[in-house]
Design a protein around this nucleic acid. Structure first.
Length: 471
DNA sequence: TGAAATGTTGGGGCG
DNA sequence: ACGCCCCAACATTTC
């Protein structure tokens, strides 16, 4: 048997539109591998919800690969060193990561392969635009989304057409490898994740299916409906995109084809959101400290509060503000949160509670199935006001008004806060204003079945404005 | 991809 | 008929 080409799967867990994989298959026998770096460095630790997703995504991918996917644990450089000792390798291909640490790892592997004189090649499988190519006239990266997007769109012609999945593959296993998917220990022993099964369908086929469902049912009116958390008007593609079960190229092309029949402005609005994902990776590429360092360094001395009780109340959805609590419970129960509500809860944490955006980001990292280093960092910094093209510091969401405006019927809030389900619409976002009789009728005992507000909105708003103003 | 404070306008009630 | 006040509705400014 001739030596196989290794294809190193990373966050590109699909067979279709995977340029490196297609090329490897076209050139002969392929040994597909996946490396979990989680044990090798704290920085690679994934959140519990992401691990759940990854486990099932790998399971699906392994099935598509005729159960030939090879699993390894540890530092990727060490894994490759061992791999190269065992058997002759023709070449190594992979899809580039645009996350700083993962990029460093692949650079180290590339160096090793160079030394060993083994051909290798990396591919862009996950971004529509190479971060290093889209630059301002002065050669510096864009810091504002809109001009970035205008420039990016002008380069649309260069975007590759999505590739079909290979029709026939010769795959092989690494016989010396004893690890399997379960050795990666991605699933928590506590069966909390069972509830995620009813919310999500993981995998490449499922991602394609979800895109179709969204384009058929959700695209028309997307621009208006996407703001209302009770509707299912969002694409729900983010975890699929994060793990590369579907590529932005596929999303873009299929959306544009669908848009020929439906409303163009909705398609544009949707693709603009996909472009925000690009912008996040773009910023992460040019500012690798994005996930943990203020983009605007003047925020560095900001006096964030370290109040464990307030933070816990926020995490558990027990702040006493129903739209906040509904969002936080949705997150815990389903591994996601509607985009509008993410902004509201993030504003509440960073402005009303004056808690460090990194604490919020860490919780999202642990609980979101679409937790993404680039998007999480960019968007938290956006809300906190310290980020790229950020929201101004004085933009403070009022959870009562936001609830009334974007969940006017209270459907979303009641869905995730069953203890308030009997409360009349008039008081749903201000239960503390309801009379004793009304609360009793609704079966609510404030401070017992549902908390009193943990902060005063007006006062905390004033304090935030004052603190931010001092910057 | 806000909200609150402040300013302006115009219609109606009323002496 | 007129001026005055009130206030809702909308617009602008400010944080």
């Amino acid at each position: 048997m001739t030596a196989p080409t290794i294809f190193w799967f990373r966050n590109d867990l699909r067979l279709s539109d995977n340029p490196g994989f297609s090329q490897a298959v076209a050139e002969g026998t392929v040994m597909p591998i996946f490396i979990s770096e989680e044990e090798s460095a704290e920085a690679f630790k994934m959140g519990a919800a992401s691990r759940w997703w990854l486990h099932h995504s790998l399971e699906k991918l392994d099935r598509s690969l005729q159960h030939k996917l090879n699993f390894y644990r540890g530092n990727s450089l060490e894994v490759f060193k061992k791999l190269l000792q065992h058997s002759p390798i023709k070449a190594v291909y992979w899809s580039r990561s645009y996350e700083p640490l993962a990029f460093q790892q692949e650079q180290a592997v590339a160096q090793l392969l160079e030394q060993k004189n083994i051909p290798f090649q990396s591919f862009n499988a996950s971004l529509l635009w190479e971060p290093c190519e889209v630059l301002k006239k002065d050669g510096k990266p864009y810091q504002v989304f809109t001009p970035f997007y205008v420039e990016a769109l002008s380069r649309s012609a260069a975007i590759r057409k999505p590739l079909p999945a290979p029709t026939s593959m010769k795959l092989c296993r690494d016989q010396s490898n004893l690890d399997d998917l379960n050795s990666l220990a991605l699933l928590s022993k506590i069966p909390w994740h069972h509830k995620l099964h009813s919310c999500w369908k993981v995998g490449e086929q499922e991602a394609q299916e979800q895109l179709k469902i969204f384009l058929q049912n959700g695209l028309e009116g997307y621009q208006q409906h996407r703001d209302f958390p009770a509707f299912s008007a969002t694409s729900r593609l983010s975890p699929h995109l994060h793990f590369g079960e579907i590529s932005p190229h596929q999303v873009r092309q299929t959306t544009q084809q669908a848009a020929l029949k439906t409303v163009k402005k909705d398609a544009d609005a949707f693709l603009r959101e996909v472009a925000w994902r690009e912008f996040s990776y773009y910023q992460l590429f040019h500012f690798p400290e994005l996930p943990w360092k203020n983009f605007q360094s003047k925020f560095d001395p900001f006096p964030w509060r370290h109040n464990a009780d307030l933070l816990r109340a926020w995490k558990e959805g027990k702040t006493g503000y129903p739209i906040i609590d509904a969002g936080m419970r949705e997150l815990w129960q389903t591994g996601t949160m509607h985009n509008r509500v993410r902004m509201i809860v993030a504003s509440f944490l960073t402005k009303n509670l004056l808690i460090d955006w990194r604490d919020g980001a860490a919780w999202f990292w642990d609980t979101l199935v679409d937790a993404d280093l680039a998007s999480n960092g960019l968007n938290w910094q956006w809300v906190a006001g310290c980020g790229v093209d950020a929201a101004p510091y004085f933009r403070i969401f009022n959870p009562v008004l936001q609830g009334k405006k974007f969940d006017a019927e209270g459907e979303y809030t009641r869905r995730f806060l069953p203890e308030l389900s009997q409360l009349p619409k008039k008081f749903l976002f201000t239960p503390w204003e309801a009379s004793e009789a009304i609360l009793k009728e609704a079966g609510i005992i404030l401070g017992k079945t549902y908390p009193f507000p943990i902060v005063d909105l007006q006062q905390s708003r004033e304090e935030a404005l004052q603190a931010y103003h001092l910057l």
